[in-house]
Design a protein around this nucleic acid. Structure first.
Length: 403
RNA sequence: GCGUCGGUGGUAGAGUGGUCAAUUACAACAGACUGUAAAUCUGUCGGCUUCGGCCUACGAAGGUUCAAAUCCUUCCCGACGCACCA
């Protein structure tokens, strides 16, 4: 628990500079503070907090994870913190999930997957292994008095500085008391672990700074905060779980590849910078190529290949790319198709059961729109009664095999 | 506690007795086109249907009416103002 064994850190200035600037939105108190610390050869402890609210991590998590990996490479102590306590109460920042409380079984199931997924980027073994912690360890122990004590460190005014709260207040939307508690709980994580720094998405800046304030007040420690840029879609919205462009880490290589290919062209450069480790010099070359009229598709393929390869491995990435080219560029058929038997309950019922279509009405509309095509002869099927054995394509991405 | 305003489809947000399964935008889905599942354009976008319609939905429950998302009553929830204040 006490780090008496002094781990050596790497003080390569070029690497440290890259680490503190690429894909970084903000550093508190400032970049120089952190740089000086690292150049002195201090081994810093920093953490990334994740709330296990969903069953899987997604691309948004990869950005800080890659940063953490770099810190680990340089010999620093990294901690992946699971906000299991917060998750069980329900995350209020997301209105739709506000009421959703996760059971501890669900959380535990999610957690296992998270660690597994994160291990593709950071290492939980070896001489400088990443730590895996849970904030229920300390938050679960706190009584009401402790909570009040903690809360006495913040004012309502300070809380209202947070854009989300301010906006909601302006719009006349409700803010619940427990929502105020979230930044505090998150902030207390820093105190409990006594870290030197924290890393997270730019959307977490406020919460991370609360932790900075608390650490200063309670332990007189200057915590640094690294806020990573967010991967935003063309309209400037965060790539959220609600958006269909979200790539989660539990997807098959093929799905992951396809999803990335459906990202807008504007996302290519930011994504290369944020979620790959392709050298900046090469990214600049790509940027120039696009500017002089290069086909963005080519570079999007590079991006997709790189991301899939990092997670699933080179071999899988290559296969995914081939499948993509085959299916979409050449109009072929993917290998694994859902097999439907018309025996028994009937075709539509089977399609609904397998969640290929959501209702009979949708199926009727698809037929009307000419979305159903026989792969064998390329004929459009407008009438269900024409469907016999064989392979059919519904729209662009749905395929069924009737037997 | 009193008062005012508000709660609408995946989201945002119109609609204030019939023409409302509900304008519009975003998302989604499909078609055309292409450089890709990009972009753009077009169409669709509660469910069921023998394509005539039928059923379910505008916070909840009742009520008025030939007819209610729209009016009334009660309740629940929120915002704001006033009162109260350990």
């Amino acid at each position: 628990m006490f780090g008496f064994t002094q781990q050596k850190t790497i003080t390569d200035e070029v690497k440290i500079d890259e680490l503190l600037s690429r894909g970084i939105e903000n550093v508190f108190p400032n970049k120089e503070f952190v740089k000086a610390k690292m150049m002195r050869g201090e081994r810093v402890t920093l953490y990334l907090g994740v709330d296990p609210t969903g069953p899987t991590l997604h691309m948004g998590h990869v950005i800080p994870l890659l940063k953490m990996a770099k810190f680990q490479e340089l010999g620093h102590q990294i901690i992946l913190l699971m906000g299991d306590f917060t998750a069980m109460i329900g995350d209020p920042t997301d209105k739709t999930s506000a009421r959703k409380k996760l059971s501890s079984e669900e959380v535990m199931a999610n957690l296992k997957e998270y660690k597994n997924q994160a291990s593709k980027y950071i290492s939980f073994s070896g001489s400088n292994k990443a730590l895996f912690k849970f904030n229920s360890e300390w938050l679960g122990e706190m009584g009401f008095a402790d909570v009040l004590d903690l809360a006495s460190n913040m004012t309502v005014g300070q809380m209202m500085e947070r854009d989300m709260f301010e906006n909601r207040s302006k719009e006349g939307k409700p803010i619940y008391i427990h929502e105020f508690m979230y930044p505090l709980m998150q902030g207390y994580d820093s105190v409990a672990m006594n870290v030197d720094g924290e890393i997270g998405g730019n959307d977490q800046t406020f919460n991370m700074l609360v932790g900075r304030d608390l650490l200063k007040t309670l332990k007189n420690k200057e915590k640094f905060v690294i806020a990573c840029k967010l991967l935003v879609d063309p309209t400037g919205k965060k790539m959220g779980k609600t958006e269909n462009n979200m790539v989660s880490l539990d997807q098959t290589p093929e799905d992951m590849f396809g999803k990335i290919m459906s990202w807008g062209d504007e996302l290519i450069i930011p994504a290369l910078e944020l979620i790959t480790t392709i050298p900046s010099s090469q990214i600049n070359k790509i940027k120039n190529s696009i500017l002089v009229g290069g086909n963005p598709k080519e570079f999007k393929l590079v991006l997709a290949r790189e991301i899939v390869a990092t997670y699933h491995g080179e071999g899988e990435a290559k296969k995914a790319e081939e499948a993509f080219e085959n299916t979409f560029s050449k109009g072929g058929v993917p290998e694994n198709i859902e097999e439907i038997s018309i025996e028994g309950s009937g075709l539509v019922e089977e399609l609904i059961k397998k969640e290929i279509v959501s209702s009979k009405t949708e199926w009727r509309r698809l037929l009307q729109d000419g979305a159903v095509t026989s792969v064998e002869n390329g004929e459009k099927i407008k009438d269900e009664s024409f469907i016999k054995e064989g392979v059919y394509r519904i729209g662009k991405k749905r395929f069924i095999k009737i037997k």
